[in-house]
Amino acid sequence: MRSTILTLGIIMVAFFALLIIVTSGVEKSSFKHSAQEMHRLATTTDYVILPSELAKMPEYRLIDLRKPKAFIIAHKDGALNIPVSNILDDEFKMLFASAVPKVFLAHDPIHAHETWMLLSQLGYQNLLVMELLEED
């Protein structure tokens, strides 16, 4: 009987080991909020600010979401260029996690709102969006 238990034990351990190996390759999501929580957050948070309001803020960090080429041609003073495609890069994690209000310049409102949703869902706070027209 002892040998049966041993064999079964080995089979089960092997089975679980296989499962762990198979599933370890899957990328895990690090979202802090569920879809329902994000829905509530999106409906209750007013994160869009106007340039006039921005002027009153003591401290903030402007983040320009356009491609580098467009950024080089013209950009606001003090703005940091983080193209949307690089928004999840590790080097910006510290910046997003800091308490300074981060203001996204919405040259493209869709991407600005999406970026706000994405980063908010990852648990970052103090994110704002300033809507701009291309001419500004």
């Binding site: 499962l19 198979v22 599933t23």
Partner: peptide
């Protein structure tokens, strides 16, 4: 098994 597999997202 199901509880643990679910916990480890398998």
């Amino acid at each position: 098994g199901l509880v643990f597999l679910n916990h480890f997202r398998m």
